[in-house]
Design a binder for these strands. Structure first.
Length: 429
RNA sequence: GGGUCGGUGUCCGAGUGGCCAAAGGAAGCAGACUGUAAAUCUGCCGGCUCAGCCUACGGGGGUUCGAAUCCCUCCCGGCCCA
């Protein structure tokens, strides 16, 4: 699938390379076929948009003839990586971790090709090897190669040690050894010579490379990608309603699409490069469009469509686009029943019994029940401040009764909080 | 183990007997202006059956008319010593 341009140049052009351990990596990626891995710790039951850069990098790797290996951290997830974390983590329960792992493996599988004759992808679980090691063996065989002096100097550890009231537990301190051992294991058993990851993984990656050098007298390589940030420099991946997950049950495709649609002008260009496969010509055009006609948001639209396409498929993308257009249109009441049905098909929905509408439900209660307010207090406040809309019409009285007379086409209510958050209320009999 | 400092709302952080649902900042939410952007401005920002009540300042107990504030005890963390 290589398109003539070398993988390394392509990644570089897209701003996807932060650091490499050796400049030879460029040549290796372009000419030979190698195995490379990225680790994912199953700290939640789904991957989120923050993981997409790495997943897509594996995909790019495979498209250029390399074998991508995704390592799910069944063992390291139990420990917790201190990198980029300002405080000690709570340990995850083993059962929960196992469930998370299964789902994440399934998600990873969607993006990679496992059928290829030449460079089929692999998903491995590091519990398969880390779980078998005996402590004393590990300390003798692996621990011997690690200098605490050097570990302490690593940024991820240093910051925690410097932190006045946090500190770092021995458990998290050892994380680096486990990740290094992963690399060694993959190097030995899968001929994997490259580890990739976000730039906060640099310390962990290089320590794996050192371990391989010391134990095998062989060279392994590392490549990191820049952390994706929001325009204000804060962490990417959270929306107003929390983390943006890949699992459609945790973040609806509609919300997923909206998240990318709302990308700030300053970063939309880099997002397009990280999260889509658009070519240089198109990227250039969109950059220009953002400068010339920012109000049209062409880049944002292209971004949202392309990413939703990759993650949820073209059919879903089409639906959420229609939904967005309809919901943000001026008069929802003017929409045909058919259009409305299509628009709200995949919007978040709650159901209420018809009987409650015949008595009338206070708007404040409805907003709360719909999940648009965390408490009834909040619900009342939002309404009083003019932030609540019933069928796209602002209603500022929290005690106003909503009844069956408010139902619109198809027998639903459209409830909105603020400008962006919609919930469709369906009536059940 | 000893000493010492500390544990306050989502986070940071003031408060050392009543004026404390607790200063200030950040985050977040709503509104205005815009482009479903950014910046800015205004308001909100524990809960509830909301002009009232309930729950809260690490846990438990106590002193007091009254405690985030004082005492006892336990738990947790930092630093120093062993």
């Amino acid at each position: 699938m290589g398109d003539g341009v070398g993988l390394f140049e392509e990644m570089k052009g897209r701003g996807l390379i932060a650091q490499v351990t050796d400049s030879a990596i460029g040549e290796m990626l372009n000419s030979s076929s190698l195995s490379a891995y990225i680790g994912f710790d199953p700290t939640a039951d789904s991957l989120h948009v923050g993981h997409l850069v790495q997943i897509f990098n594996l995909k790019r790797l495979q498209e250029h003839g390399h074998r991508p290996i995704a390592v799910a951290g069944g063992a390291t997830g139990l420990i917790g990586d201190p990198s980029g974390k300002s405080e000690e983590r709570n340990l995850l329960d083993g059962d929960i971790l196992a469930q998370n792992l299964a789902r994440i493996e399934a998600q990873l599988s969607r993006f990679l090709d496992f059928e290829s004759k030449t460079n089929s992808a692999l998903v491995l679980n590091n519990a398969d090897w880390l779980g078998r090691i005996h402590l004393v063996d590990f300390l003798r065989d692996i621990g011997k190669y690690f200098s605490v002096n050097q570990m302490v100097a690593k940024e991820s550890v240093k910051s925690r040690i410097a932190s006045r009231d946090q500190g770092i537990s021995f458990t998290e301190f050892t994380y680096m050894l486990l990740q290094s051992y992963d690399f060694l294991h993959l190097f030995d058993n899968y001929n994997c010579i490259l580890q990739m990851g976000a730039s906060d993984q640099w310390g962990n990656i290089t320590s794996g490379i050192e371990l391989i050098r010391k134990m095998r007298q062989k060279v392994a390589y590392g490549l990191t990608t820049p952390l994706v940030l929001k325009a204000d420099g804060t962490k990417f991946g959270k929306s107003e309603s929390g983390t943006v997950w890949i699992d459609p049950d945790k973040t609806s495709p509609y919300q997923f699409y909206q998240f990318f649609l709302r990308a700030e002008d300053e970063v939309v260009g880099s997002y397009l490069r990280s999260f889509t496969w658009l070519g240089a010509d198109e990227l250039g055009e969109l950059d220009l469009a953002t400068v010339r006609e920012p109000g049209k948001r062409r880049a944002q639209n292209a971004l949202a469509a392309a990413v939703t396409d990759l993650v949820h498929g073209p059919e879903m993308t089409r639906k959420v686009k229609v939904a967005a257009q309809a919901l943000f249109s001026e008069d929802i009441l003017g929409l045909s029943e058919e259009m409305l049905a299509l628009a709200i098909e995949d919007a978040p929905t709650i159901s209420i019994p018809a009987s409650s509408l015949s008595d009338g439900v206070a708007l404040a209660d409805l907003l709360y029940d719909a999940g648009l307010a965390k408490s009834k207090s909040e619900s009342r406040k939002v309404i009083a401040q003019g932030g609540a809309y019933l069928n796209n019409v602002r209603v500022a009285d929290p005690d106003v009764k909503v009844n069956s007379g408010d139902l619109i086409a198809g027998g639903v209510l459209l409830l909105r909080r603020g400008k962006k958050d919609y919930v469709v209320v369906r009536v059940t009999t």
